[in-house]
């Protein structure tokens, strides 16, 4: 039993890591209905900037994280301006292809020698790791920090979207650009803000991820990005709490599968479960059934 609980705790940590990325992913999707494949790579850039901040330039950790977040927010806005805005009224798929292009660009450009370089870097711990023993389970301070940050992000996003003017503008833009414009919403600014916040969260996630799994390289964003996106879809993409729910479920499924069924078949079983869930809930666990356009 204790063993089982420990595995659940492992799954929780993994799930929270996915949630960290999935939240930004799903928020951007919610507003612009674009699968932003470059999100995982912004996450990578954030991890690198955070690493340079506290390990190379010697900034205090909070300053390093803040720097990474600001820089990535800027990066997100630039990406949107350059690669997505010209395609806003084109078929949705065009923006998706552009996102794939941006993602490849960030990966290959970062791995050039004068940028981040292609090698794997070991990230030193910015603070000593502490383990607490609670009822036979070992909990580390990093796990607690990640948990708190995810909770903080979730609450912040909910407040932002449902309690502020900007949030209202975002929700309006999500429904209909033209109607939003008629209502006096500045669509361009709103979308820029969305990307800025989403990318800043990606950077925050990236730094924490690099602290928890202390290794970074230019292609590190692909898999966590994909898994986080899958988690967001599982929870119902575009829905903020859905991203956390989906991520936690993904984490448990992956961990429990590799602990009790087969570590070889883990990904296959995790995705089979995803497909099954989608068959019964075609718009994800918390997704609303879409009204059909006739």
């Amino acid at each position: 039993m204790e063993h089982f609980l420990e595995q659940v705790l492992n799954g929780l940590q993994l799930g929270l890591m996915y949630a960290l990325i999935a939240l930004g992913y799903t928020m951007v999707y919610g507003v612009v209905q674009l699968i932003n494949f470059a999100h995982g790579d912004v996450f990578m850039v954030g991890a690198f900037l955070g690493y340079f901040g506290f390990a190379v330039w010697g900034l205090p950790l909070p300053v390093a994280i803040l720097t990474a977040m600001v820089a990535c927010a800027l990066l997100g806005v630039i990406i949107e301006r350059v690669a997505y805005r010209p395609l806003r009224y084109a078929p949705k798929i065009a923006a998706l292809i552009s996102a794939i292009g941006v993602s490849l660009f960030l990966e290959y450009f970062s791995s050039l020698k004068f940028v981040f370089g292609p090698n794997y870097r070991v990230v030193p711990r910015p603070f000593p790791e502490v383990h607490w023993n609670i009822a036979g389970l070992s909990v580390s301070n990093i796990q607690v920090i990640v948990f708190v940050v995810v909770l903080f992000m979730l609450i912040l996003l909910q407040i932002l979207i449902y309690r502020t003017k900007t949030g209202m503008a975002m929700r309006t833009v999500a429904v209909d650009h033209n109607a939003a414009r008629l209502m006096g919403v500045n669509v361009d600014t709103t979308i820029s803000i969305t990307f800025a916040i989403g990318s800043a969260f990606a950077a925050l996630g990236g730094v924490l991820y690099a602290i928890a799994y202390p290794q970074i390289h230019p292609f590190m964003g692909i898999m966590p990005g994909l898994k986080a996106f899958t988690a967001a879809v599982l929870g119902g993409i575009g829905i903020i709490p859905g991203a956390v729910l989906g991520a936690l479920i993904m984490g448990q499924v992956e961990t429990l599968t590799s602990a009790y069924i087969s570590s070889q078949m883990r990904d296959a079983i995790a995705f089979a479960i995803l497909i099954l869930v989608l068959l019964f809930r075609p718009t994800g666990l918390l997704g609303r059934t879409e009204t059909e356009k006739v």
């Binding site: 991820y209 799994y213 590799s258 570590s263």
Partner: peptide, 15 residues
């Protein structure tokens, strides 16, 4: 036990 190329979390099998 096995893992996949891009895995970073091995806690389940290590437990």
């Amino acid at each position: 036990e096995a893992y996949a190329k891009n895995d970073t979390d091995f806690s389940a099998v290590l437990t």
